[in-house]
Nucleic acid binder design. Structure first.
Length: 105
DNA sequence: AAGTTGACTATTT
DNA sequence: AAAATAGCCAACT
């Protein structure tokens, strides 16, 4: 298999995340057959085109926080808005409760 | 071609 | 609890 197949698998797995749920990079990596390669997942999402239908916003880090740096505002990011739209709740620290919202296949 | 960087995570200070 | 360390690998310089 070629290297780009791994990326394709990552996209497929991300696409499977149900609405209202989130997954961590490590989780996606493992489900994609790439254990221990969470960074590649982030990297794959980073190269994603703007109009992509991949729900990249449902992927967050293992701490339940958003990995992208703030886009200019001090208290909100694009991803946070999208997640709120999906009924995902943040706690006071801006952290998602993974025990509740983590996607469990 | 070799070194740096980054949408990560688990472990150790 | 927060910060540093180590492991991982593709893209970029």
């Amino acid at each position: 298999m070629s290297d780009s197949d791994s990326y394709q698998r990552i996209y497929t797995v991300v696409n499977m995340i149900p609405k209202g749920r989130v997954a961590t990079y490590g989780q996606i990596a493992e489900l994609s057959g790439l254990p221990r390669q969470a960074r590649l997942v982030g990297y794959a999402l980073n190269m994603l085109p703007k109009g992509s239908r991949i729900p990249w916003h449902r992927v967050i880090n293992a701490q339940g926080k958003i990995s992208l740096r703030v886009e200019g505002e001090g208290s909100d990011s694009r991803q946070a808005r999208l997640l709120k739209r999906e009924k995902i709740r943040f706690n006071q620290q801006g952290v998602v409760d993974l025990k509740v919202f983590r996607w469990q296949p």
